[in-house]
Design a protein around this nucleic acid. Structure first.
Lengths: 337, 337
DNA sequence: GACATTCATCGAACCGGTTCGATTTGGAGC
DNA sequence: GCTCCAAATCGAACCGGTTCGATGAATGTC
């Protein structure tokens, strides 16, 4: 059941069926009706590969995800799901490709095989070879997070520096003088992971501006590391009264450490940072934090990408999201001095 | 840069280039070398759409995921990532399609547009309309979880009934007489979600066999619901000394409820069930539980699917996984009588 | 040296759509 | 009644691969 079969049964040429379906040229109402009847009767759907070959575009977007070995975070997961839904709303499909490790063949296939019209790249490093590959291939792409030299590219990112800075200011207003940043893992920071770098920069700069004592510690992305890391902080820096974090995965461990130390939040200790809403409200007590708006980022990323696909000469655009910091119950006045 | 361009530069016909690349007919070593040189020089990669059109297959697998609104669980996430990696190892790509809600258009596009050679369907209901659609379309597919009438289809599933049964037996051996099952949400059970149904059946049947008092409660998939649900259990069924669960997302709430009630695990209360390893080891104390082997399920699902794609007449096969129950520290002898 | 056989390669058809220029048809205008 | 024009439709080319039958050259056999 291809377009020729439909044409034969209706008694018209293949091109007429094609025009009736696409609407790119006028076709008489009577013919359109007969064509639609036959199509409904036979359950015909155009072959996507043939259409892609003829049109020169696949109506498919590539989404490059971190490999499974790198445990995906909750935010990354909901971002993936959101990208798929947004793309579906624009009648586009999403092809997944892992990258990193030994998955470069998959990345290559997606990039150079013209399987997709554009690519969304997650988990960008400050200097990222995949960005170079995409740039030289000429394939439109949008990154989540931005590279060091970001002027000429399209990206969507969360303003970690600004948000962490506002968290620190909030703590300063509450009278805290000794604060700590619980950052992502050593390896990520070492490899130049943007959010971690910018969070650190915003944290240290703002704390210094307020004359606070600031410590910046790395912590692997899991509860056990959060526990170990936070217990060490409490022991070695007993004067610290507040923490800021961008490490969601470590939170359960942080909670346990606070509990073991007999510290009440927010009476004895304040905790804030950039944390997805659904995790922040499940914390005990609910966290004062900035959301990571995965759905909005997905919408923007797809919009930017489709815009570039439609007009490759369009000037690069980007979006730096600074969601509001929602006041909940995890920050309070400093009781110590 | 298409295959004709390569052929022209080498001075051979297009078919010779094609055969040199696929190896489906012998080509002289000298010609192969010249072709490879030109290909490397020009950076040629065959057009995936053209190849798909000519071969009649896309080397792409469809993966139907629950919609983003249904918060994906950790296990589902790692399953998705694993499917992508396994498929990549077989030189296949993965096209994502959300289903449910108003995403049927995307599902349709994937199924009927011949964009994929086969489909993996997640989160199967006992009676699932998507299975009927796929069956009548003739497209090869594998389901994660199985439908009521499962003889004629291909699937991979975890033996929830058997595993939960073994958990109950383990509790019986430890002397527990009053046990509860913390199941997934009301809605899932109402819609006939297989794992929930089978866990419940295995639980009640086995408990009855051991002469235990057994309660089966539904709980939404989030920590807050876990807290509320478990507090109600502790209040209304004070004689319960052990719980079995398949609801990973509710665990943090369960932990909080146990703590609030001043119950020590495993001294005062035992907890076990089917829980992904990485969550089980992060619990406090680490949980005696059966793992949900997402990676293995992904491997099996892709294998089964590729087998069916290669030979559609092959007899249907399936895999019911019963991973071992790993003894950790969350179950102990019943101290009450 | 004629003939069969193998090996390497070629040319054309095909997969199923889209698109462009050409052609037919019917009605309006004079 | 003839021309002109617009609307509707047709036919052919094209997208970039794969595949099959045919062809020609080289090799082996008696």
């Amino acid at each position: 059941m291809n377009i020729g079969e439909i044409a034969k049964r209706v008694g018209v040429s293949r091109s007429t069926v094609s025009y009736a379906l696409s609407g790119k040229r006028p076709v008489s109402a009577a013919t359109v009706r007969r064509i639609n009847d036959v199509i409904a009767e036979l359950g015909y759907r155009p072959n996507a590969s043939a259409r892609a070959l003829a049109e020169g575009r696949t109506r498919t977007l590539g989404l490059v995800i971190p490999p499974a070995s790198t445990r995906l975070t909750d935010v990354q997961l909901s971002f993936v799901a959101s990208v798929v839904e947004v793309a579906a709303a624009y009648d586009h499909d999403v092809l997944l490709s892992p990258s990193g490790g030994d998955h470069d063949r998959s990345f290559d296939r997606v990039v150079t095989g013209r399987r997709v019209d554009g690519v969304i790249l997650m988990e960008i490093l400050l200097r990222d070879p995949r960005v170079d590959r995409l740039t030289s291939s000429g394939l439109p792409f949008v990154t989540i997070g931005h590279v060091a030299d970001s002027g000429a590219s399209r990206w969507v990112d969360v303003d970690y520096a600004g948000l962490i800075s506002r968290c620190v200011r909030h703590l300063a207003d509450l009278g805290h003088e000794h604060v700590v940043l619980i950052n992502r893992s050593d390896e990520l920071v070492a490899s130049g992971y943007g959010p971690a770098m910018r969070a650190s920069a915003g944290f240290l700069e703002t704390a210094e501006g307020f004359g606070m004592t600031a410590h910046d510690v790395c912590c692997a992305d899991d509860p056990a590391a959060g526990l170990a890391c936070f217990e060490e902080i409490l022991e070695r820096r007993p004067d610290v009264t507040a923490a800021v974090t961008i490490n969601e995965a470590a939170l359960p461990g942080v909670q346990r450490a606070l509990h073991r130390a007999g510290l009440d939040v927010p009476r004895d200790f304040s905790l804030t940072g950039v944390i997805a809403d659904r995790l922040a409200v499940d914390f005990h007590p609910p966290l004062t934090a900035a959301d990571v708006p995965a759905g909005q980022m997905a919408q923007l990323a797809v919009d930017l990408l489709l815009e570039q696909i439609a007009d490759p000469s369009a000037p690069p655009r980007h979006a730096l999201l600074a969601p509001p910091i929602t006041l909940r119950s995890s920050t309070g006045a400093c009781r110590r001095s």
